[in-house]
Amino acid sequence: MFSEPASERTFLWVGLSILLILVLAIGLVLLTRQPTYRGVLYDPPVAAPDFTLYTVGGREVHLSDFRGKIVLLFFGYTTCPDICPTTLAVLRQVYAGLGKAAEHVQVLYVTVDPERDNPDRVQEYVSFFQPAFLGLSGSLEALEPVWQAYGVTRIIEPAPASAAGYFVTHSTRLYLIDQEGQLFLSYSYGTPPEDILHDLQELLK
């Protein structure tokens, strides 16, 4: 029998200690890892203001009906030929990308133009992109507090020379409300569908 020199044993212990610390550190990082989102984070998240609006046939819809699902909320108008359909086309791609998980996500499209967009018209319009999307309208009195609560600016711009009659200048943010009804993320116009899909998949994990 021969015994190890003391220096060699110390070396072994130091090595083992370093290894143990490394394993613990990696474990800690993995456990506390915060998912990164590509949308703009509400920090801290705030309760999404509830509302009551109407869809096809005058059926009442409350935001709170979708507790447990992720809601993507967007404001627009059906006469809008450029930005609104762009965002709806993006949402259609996101929805398709979710596959079966799409049942956990609800897209809500709220009009900023109740004069032209009654509930039937908004629903017909959004169904054109994806029948599962809900189009919502209501009276000016019902809609104004909703626009206000979500910080949506909305200005009627007369356009007498245009066959459209008037345009509605409006803000274009897309809001993500999580399963607990908290405003969690928002997206600016032009966010690629992959980014929104990424965040949804992260939240649905």
């Binding site: 450029d82 930005i83 600016t153 245009s162 066959a163 459209a164 803000s171 274009t172």
Partner: peptide, 20 residues
Amino acid sequence: AKAVELHETVMEGDQMKMKH
């Protein structure tokens, strides 16, 4: 279409504005 027009969408910050 009944009417065909030249338009431009202008983004002012987060706001979408239509110009004829």
